[in-house]
């Protein structure tokens, strides 16, 4: 049974993949630290919306990941660490708002509630926000990297969401380009008038 999605990590960001079979992912929040390859994935998360979303996507697409270590300096204002903790503890509401987050704009836009619930079931959060001692971080990773079996479910795959274009019911001419060429700002159409 596959435990890791194809082309994992499934989304790109300021992080690097280590050993995809490892049980632990390391989120260094606003800090930058050299990868320890015993971790499945390792890198920063600075924002309370898209950043948190990427963490979830790369975790639920790899069933081997059973622990997330939050470490490094908290991302000021955005509070990505506090937000990930709130996401793990409380989930999201129907609007995508991360319950209990104190970050600036804490919303998950592109993932279903079910995906967030899966994330909460799959992993255990080790909250060491503020920890920057690299030796201690390595030691935690060393302790956890092979300590658990994969989560018993299939890895979740993601397809790039494509917004469907809906042609406008009527087209106006609110931007003048030349005497006979106009543009409709809402549809993006540029056209010639008689």
């Amino acid at each position: 049974m596959y435990t890791v999605s194809e082309k994992w990590p499934v989304t790109k960001g300021d992080f690097s993949a280590g050993n995809p079979k490892s049980c632990i992912a390391v989120v260094t929040l606003a800090s930058s630290m050299p990868l320890f390859e015993k971790a499945a994935i390792w890198g920063s998360c600075k924002t309370e919306n898209l950043g948190a979303e990427k963490v979830v996507m790369n975790v639920v697409s790899n069933c081997n990941i059973r622990y997330i270590l939050l470490c490094g300096s908290e991302s000021r204002g955005h509070l990505a660490g506090q937000t990930l903790k709130a996401l793990y503890e409380n989930g999201i509401d129907e609007d995508g708002r991360i319950l209990g987050s104190e970050g600036a704009i804490p919303f998950i836009e592109n993932l279903e509630i079910e995906t967030i619930e899966r994330f909460r079931q799959q992993v255990e959060l080790i909250d060491r926000t503020g920890l920057t001692d690299i030796e201690e971080i390595y030691s935690i990773v060393d302790n956890y990297h092979d300590s658990e079996k994969p989560f018993e479910a299939s890895p979740i795959s993601f397809k790039k969401a494509v917004r469907k274009y809906q042609p406008p019911e009527s087209i106006g001419a609110d931007i003048l380009i030349s005497e006979k060429v106009v543009m409709d700002a809402f549809s993006g159409f540029i056209y010639e008038i008689a």
Partner: peptide, 20 residues
């Protein structure tokens, strides 16, 4: 928003918001 997350939408909104 970042590249890959709709970075260009703001350009269309610039036109539309000014038109509206």
């Amino acid at each position: 928003t970042p590249m890959g997350n709709g970075s260009g939408v703001s350009l269309r909104i610039t036109l539309a918001a000014k038109a509206k």
